[in-house]
Amino acid sequence: MEKFEKLTAIVAPIDRPNVDTDAIIPKQFLKSIKRTGFGPNLFDEWRYLDHGEPGMDNSKRKLNPEFVLNQSRYKDAKILLARDNFGCGSSREHAPWALQDYGFRAIIAPSYADIFFNNSFKNGILLIILDAAIVDRLFKAVTAQVGYQLTIDLAANMIKTPEGETISFEVDEFRKHRLLNGLDDIGLTLQQTDDIKAYEVRRRQEAPWLFS
């Protein structure tokens, strides 16, 4: 997993609540058996004017000029600003894969759906939760100023605005630790092999039907 330490980048706003993972990456792209290559189909139904299917040459498709990510001012965005309950619906990890493949490394929103939240951190994307009022203020600032950038410092739990304001945020210590160090979850758990085996011995006594 890629480490996340500090990031200064353009912010792109997706101004609607309940953005679901079907919208982030539509189902036809879930047929891939790979982890990569989902970026060109991120927000496919909003982003293009035609219907997208796997295997199409996306560079030849007609873009929806209304969609925020198609506007040149947000071209190099690496931070996504979103509303409540971002990432709701299906558990597909293809959603964070698509966001990451497109280039997003951090998202700021008032709330996220649980499974999406977990999946994102496992792919090196930092999800920041801020008060709805602060998020609202950021939406206004981002749309008012072309080239609006934020600096996120994970070690310091701090966001810096272009105006020099600092906004602090909280993130679970265990997630922060893994993100800062780019740690592999499975490798960490396998260091606890003895605990797992001891549990199995104990549990087999209590509930043998789970082991037959």
């Binding site: 990890e93 499975i186 758990t189």
Partner: peptide, 23 residues
């Protein structure tokens, strides 16, 4: 019973466990 992403599918396959924060 709860849904998981693909990284966790791999984690369960490899370790029979998941790292979870209690809800």
């Amino acid at each position: 019973a709860f849904g998981i992403g693909t990284s966790e599918v791999e984690h369960v396959l490899a370790t029979q466990c998941l790292v979870q924060k209690k809800s």
